[in-house]
Simulated assay, not measured.
Amino acid sequence: MDVLGRLLALLALLVFGAGLRTVGILDTTRTAWLNAAAYYVALPALVFVATYDQAIDELLSPSLAGGLALVFGLTAGIAWLVHRNRAADSRRSVAIVQSYHSNLGYLGLPLVAATFADDVTAIASVVLGVVTLLQLPLTILVLSSLNGANATLSAELRRLATNPVLLSLLAGLAIGSAHVSVAPAVTAGLDVLSMFALPLALLCVGASLQIDTPSIDAGATGAVVALKICCMPLLAWVIFSWLAVDTATVTATVVMLGTPTAVSTFVFANELGGDEAFASLNVFITTLASIATLFVLITLVG
């Protein structure tokens, strides 16, 4: 019941964020402030405290990197096969992207940190880094190529190189690998900041969710939901069980890859010619449905 309680609290925060947007409290400016606090402060603090006392060779193994690339590649390939006959390129591109692009930073890592032990959280931080490096360039490539948009891939890659979450991951792993001690006062302060990662992220996600009823395509949205929160974690479970990795790695990868479609896919769809109303609906539905599927996943792997 503890896991169910956590996920229901997650849903309550999502609904609360959406409600604050509806009544005008979380307008665009205030949501941007909360988003900046989560993105530049709370999430980097969470990643750093999870990794600063871990050597990189203890976390990033060939099995972990290869398994993540295999799960990601298979999911993206299946998504292309499933959605290849969608009539409009704008909708087809969004459906493909949202079938594999996971909400690792705002939901996955904070949820893992709130639910599992430190060793699982440390591996989940590495999962976030590896999968982000895979999914962001592919998402830009798919949307821009199918929609004929002039995407500045080089600019996005430069932004990725200065991503505060990835930089905090690299800093934590570098310090852990060099066995450098960090002052207790510093880690205590960062630990306090990291506690705000999940609530801030959930409020931001809730404030960003939108539903446009005329855009509903039950078949396409159902396929996105099935691929993102059912097929992808199932593939992770099968592949990492086959690789015979430790329990912490299986737990971290299955839960992280079982997260819903990232809110950022709506932003990318808007910028690169995708069907933004369809994208917004899919973010909402996958997030809502993931409450149930994440409960099942966490119960099974936990």
Score class of each variant (00 low, 15 high):
Gly129Phe: 00
Arg159Cys: 06
Ile211Glu: 05
Ser99Val: 14
Thr162Leu: 07
Ala38Met: 07
Arg92Thr: 02
Tyr40Asp: 08
Trp33Glu: 13
Ser145Cys: 13
Leu111Asp: 04
Ser102Met: 07
Val112Ser: 07
Thr251Asp: 07
Ala65Thr: 12
Gly273Trp: 11
Leu193Lys: 08
Ala114Thr: 10
Phe284Arg: 01
Val283Ser: 03
Val165Gln: 08
Ala236Cys: 11
Leu200Asp: 09
Thr121Ser: 01
Thr162Tyr: 05
Val165Met: 15
Asp27Trp: 00
Ala76His: 08
Thr286Glu: 07
Val94Cys: 09
Pro164Trp: 00
Trp33Gly: 02
Tyr106Trp: 11
Leu169Asn: 10
Ile175Leu: 05
Pro184Gln: 06
His179Ser: 14
Ser194Lys: 03
Gly129His: 08
Trp237Lys: 05
Leu272Gly: 00
Asn147His: 02
Ala124Cys: 08
Trp80Phe: 15
Pro110Ser: 06
Ser90Ala: 02
Leu203Val: 06
Pro199Arg: 01
Val71Arg: 07
Ser208Ala: 13
Phe240Asn: 07
Ala122Ser: 12
Asp89Lys: 15
Gly273Leu: 07
Ser241Asn: 13
Gly172Cys: 13
Asn103Cys: 04
Phe284Cys: 04
Ala262Ile: 07
Leu4Ala: 13
Ala171Pro: 04
Gly5Gln: 04
Glu271His: 04
Val165Thr: 04
